Amino acid sequence: MAAAPLTASERASRVKLMIFDVDGVLTDGGLMFTAQGDTMKSFNSMDGHGLKLLGEAGIRTAIITGRRSEIVAVRARELHISHLYQGVADKIEAFTELMREANVTAEQCGYMGDDWPDLGVLTRCGFAAAPANAHPEVIARAHWVSEARGGHGAAREVCDAILRAQHRYEALLAAACGASRA
Rank of each mutant, 00 (worst) to 15 (best):
P117A: 02
Y85W: 12
R141K: 14
H80S: 15
A130F: 06
A129Q: 08
I139S: 02
S146R: 13
M112W: 10
W116A: 08
H80P: 00
H83N: 11
S82F: 03
R141L: 11
A142C: 08
A132R: 15
A106I: 10
A132S: 14
E147K: 14
E93Q: 14
E147A: 10
T65Y: 06
G120Y: 01
R75M: 12
A129I: 05
H143D: 15
G87F: 00
M112Y: 07
T105K: 11
A140G: 04
S69T: 03
D90K: 06
E147Y: 00
L122A: 00
D114P: 03
Q86I: 00
R77W: 04
V121T: 03
V104K: 09
T123Q: 10
A134G: 05
R67M: 13
A132V: 11
E70D: 14
H143R: 06
E101H: 12
R68C: 07
C109Y: 11
F127R: 09
A73K: 15
Q86M: 02
D114K: 07
N103P: 04
Q86A: 01
G110R: 12
G87S: 00
I81H: 02
A140F: 03
G87W: 01
A89R: 14
V72N: 06
R124I: 00
N103G: 12
P136W: 06
G110C: 10
G113P: 01
L119V: 03
C109V: 04
G150I: 01
T96R: 15
R149N: 15
A102Q: 07
Q108C: 09
R67F: 09
D118S: 01
I92N: 06
A73N: 12
G66T: 01
A142K: 09
A148K: 15
Y111W: 10
A76W: 11
D90S: 04
G126D: 08
H135D: 09
